[in-house]
Amino acid sequence: MQSPFHQTVIERLQRQILDLEGYKTKPSKQQKKLGFAHIEKHFPNQVFPTGTIHEFVSTQPEHTACTSAFIMALLAKLNTHQGIYVWIGKQRQLFPPGLNYFGIPAHQIIFINLVKPKDILWATEEALKCQSLSGVISELEAITFAQSQRLQLTVEKSKVTGFILRTQTGPIHATACAARWQISPTASLNLTQLPGVGFANWQVELLKVRNGSTASFNISWHNGQFHTIENLVPQPFLPHAIGS
């Protein structure tokens, strides 16, 4: 067993390593906070990393729907003010009225449709350079390690948070992203014992976290908040309300 002294030394060293790797422990006021410890605890310093690239893997349309909603919910929680978001993809399949439920009014999202993967990458990089954006989501079939590194370098300068939605099937190779997520739908939550479909419920898998631990947990979204299965209490029936 380690003595308490050893533990503090190791913690201090770990923090130093994180600093060197670019995970600055900023004053807590500046850092955007998710406010949901259940997710945050898997990341270094117990802070959801913003100003980096997150990678989401999804191969089926059902999963894409969940992943998009999860990203929207994350962004809504991270940005308390009304921001501008850019969504870059081949063809818009998202249905703007459906996104509102997850906390971001769809008119704040600028959709950019491009045909060539090369153009999507270019536009993603340009968008990530733009510090006025609150989030950039890019649908890419595939991304190479070098390309992801390039994007990572861009956001390190601009501090914009980027989300890459990979739709490629087959083996996934390494990227320079801060985390790799996979969101899949699970049976909806029915808190009120009423028949019908309940609240959206997802299995969130953190396949890879830089300097953090992988994890898999169940998360639900309703009334404009994330909820875990554990802390759920049956509550009276409320109509689906839009996020705060």
């Binding site: 349309p61 998009s68 459906g98 769809a106």
Partner: peptide
């Protein structure tokens, strides 16, 4: 351009809609 009307929130709509 700003929305002229409110987003309809009382009806659930899908996140992904097929063309």
């Amino acid at each position: 351009q700003l929305p002229e009307t409110e987003w309809q929130a009382h009806k659930l709509r899908p996140t992904v809609l097929l063309n």
